[in-house]
């Protein structure tokens, strides 16, 4: 079944086609989200959100981009939304903690141990993911799509709706910022 046939079938309410769509893209959605969130449990939750969003909005998919590009875009947006909400909650909790000491623990992944990283690189990768978390959203998105999902610059440009030159610039700045941040850490 081609992408357009799959989209048409899902739009027509074919639940088997939706199951096929989930099975085809679940791995790339989950791994993209995991790169952003650095937490397996929350990444699973957001992966579900991504597919529910796809189910709700697939009628609006016009086929101007590839289905995979559209799905990556939703995954990135849902992940960034989740991180923004988590940051807002964290700020609010910090404010509340000034008045009340009994607060629930807010999502805050520390030293994320990515299951897909080789054993000998785990410590360095944990530091790198922490540094990635500090990057501006666009640099973070371009870098993660390249490193975690092994997307080409052209694919990243399509997902982020930018031209390739802009993506190259984002990747260069992301690497410079990460190098600076990691050097500072190792030098201290």
């Amino acid at each position: 079944m081609s992408d357009q046939e799959l989209v048409n079938a899902v739009t027509g309410g074919n639940i088997k086609a939706f199951e096929q769509l989930v099975n085809t893209y679940k791995k790339s959605v989950f791994n993209t989200v995991l790169g952003f969130l650095r937490d397996v449990e929350n990444a699973e939750e957001v992966t579900q959100d991504v597919f529910i969003k796809i189910y709700e909005t697939i009628g609006g998919f016009k086929g101007e981009a590839k289905l995979s590009t559209w799905i990556y875009r939703i995954s990135v947006n849902q992940s960034l939304d989740y991180l923004r909400k988590a940051k807002r909650k964290k700020r609010f909790a910090t404010l509340l903690s000034l008045f009340n000491s009994e607060n629930e623990v807010i999502y805050q992944p520390v030293n994320f141990d990515h299951p897909g990283v080789l054993m000998e690189n785990k410590e360095k990768a944990a530091l790198l993911f922490k540094a990635i978390d500090e990057l501006p959203d666009k640099q973070k998105t371009a870098f993660l799509l390249q490193k975690v999902e092994h997307c080409s610059q052209q694919k990243i440009a399509e997902i982020m709706q930018l031209n390739e030159g802009a993506v190259e610039s984002l990747l260069t700045r992301a690497k410079l910022n990460l190098r600076k941040s990691l050097t500072k850490y190792y030098a201290s």
Partner: peptide, 10 residues
């Protein structure tokens, strides 16, 4: 450290 996720597995 920057190269540590070059061969990351899905």
């Amino acid at each position: 450290a920057l190269k540590s996720i070059d061969n990351i597995q899905s």
